[in-house]
């Protein structure tokens, strides 16, 4: 019962703060709510016995990426959105319509999956669903990364390197306000 209550609280916080990300007028608040969502999801990971994922979620997402977001928001010193919207409002309402359609479709899909008799379901989904969550061992993840996913792993490292270089090149001049490019070169 305790687990279920904690699960419910996490779910609620995650959903509510996700909504607040969209509805908060100032990006700083939005970013903080996003952190809240991520932490809640990390809590859900812990409840599922996925400690590794939870740790990554907290350290990388909530820690590193969100700090970067905060940093940029502060740097640009963006205030509330002001001024009249330029684009037509149609995009928002049409977005709502198609978002609703999308949600309906996915809900229908999940409902189909959930209400399906256990015996007729896909063999992989049935047996462990009822059992307690198994703990995915860390060394198994590591082995996968070094064997099956080794190419993807290496490419990801290259991707990160490119991202670092790209970010530096793109933002270099602007980060050092008042210093001309010639000064940087010399």
């Amino acid at each position: 019962m305790l687990i279920q209550s904690i699960y419910g609280i996490f779910c609620f916080v995650a959903l509510f703060s996700a909504l607040l990300v969209v509805f908060s007028p100032h990006p700083v608040y939005g970013a903080l709510y996003l952190v809240t969502t991520m932490l809640s999801i990390a809590g859900l990971f812990v409840l599922m016995n996925a400690q590794l994922a939870a740790a990554f979620q907290v350290i990388v997402y909530a820690g590193a990426i969100m700090v970067l977001f905060m940093f940029v928001i502060m740097l640009l010193n963006l205030g509330r959105q002001d001024g009249p919207a330029v684009r037509t409002r149609g995009v928002r309402w049409w977005g709502l319509v198609f978002g609703g359609v999308f949600l309906a479709q996915v809900v229908a899909m999940v409902a189909q999956l959930v209400t399906r008799p256990v015996g007729a379901a896909a063999p992989s989904a049935a047996p462990s669903a009822a059992a307690a969550f198994a703990s995915v061992r860390i060394h198994e993840v590591a082995r996968l990364l070094m064997t099956d996913y080794v190419y993807a792993f290496e490419m990801t490292s290259v991707l990160l390197l490119i991202a670092i270089v790209g970010a530096v090149v793109l933002a270099r001049r602007q980060l050092v306000q008042g210093v001309s490019e010639e000064d940087l070169r010399s």
Binding site: N49, A50, V60, S124, A125, V141, L160, A163
Partner: peptide, 24 residues
Amino acid sequence: QSLGQARGVAVFLFVITVAAAEAA
């Protein structure tokens, strides 16, 4: 977690990495 498959976690790691690069 529900299937006891480590692959899901591995993909999760990739998604996090890509998200980090994308954010940068």
